[in-house]
């Protein structure tokens, strides 16, 4: 099993490639690989509780993708509640995760 870190820094709904990225994450999960999706900067916008895009994140989480939203990015955008399956996290967590090693890091 390979390990992938996908860092999403753009608003998923701003560009159509956001959909492609979600397909990539889903595909990696389906192939049995471990996927960590880390949302930061405008990437956290999709995780706002009640947002349409958040439902897609919840589905990904249900299928085994671990999804985190960076705390500073959330606070900067007034996001206090996250979609189901998305957990608040921090750059400390991201740094520890990177230190642990991934087969590939995709920063979008």
């Amino acid at each position: 099993m390979k390990r992938f870190l996908v860092v999403e820094s753009r608003d998923l709904t701003e560009y159509t490639s956001g959909t492609t990225l979600m397909s990539l994450v889903e595909g990696l999960g389906k192939s049995g690989d471990e996927v960590v999706l880390f949302l930061l900067e405008n990437g956290v916008i999709a995780a706002r509780k009640g947002a349409d895009a958040g439902q897609g994140l919840s589905r990904l989480s249900d299928r085994g993708t671990r999804i985190f939203a960076e705390d500073v990015s959330c606070r900067a955008r007034g996001i206090a509640a996250l979609a189901d399956g998305v957990r608040e996290s921090s750059l400390d967590f991201l740094a520890d995760a990177i230190a642990g090693g991934f087969d590939n890091i995709v920063w979008y």
């Binding site: 390990r3 985190f68 957990r87 996290s89 921090s90 967590f93 520890d96 995760a97 230190a99 642990g100």
Partner: peptide, 10 residues
């Protein structure tokens, strides 16, 4: 911090 997730990853 989510230490359980970190250790799981590592």
């Amino acid at each position: 911090m989510h230490n359980d997730e970190i250790s799981e990853s590592q």
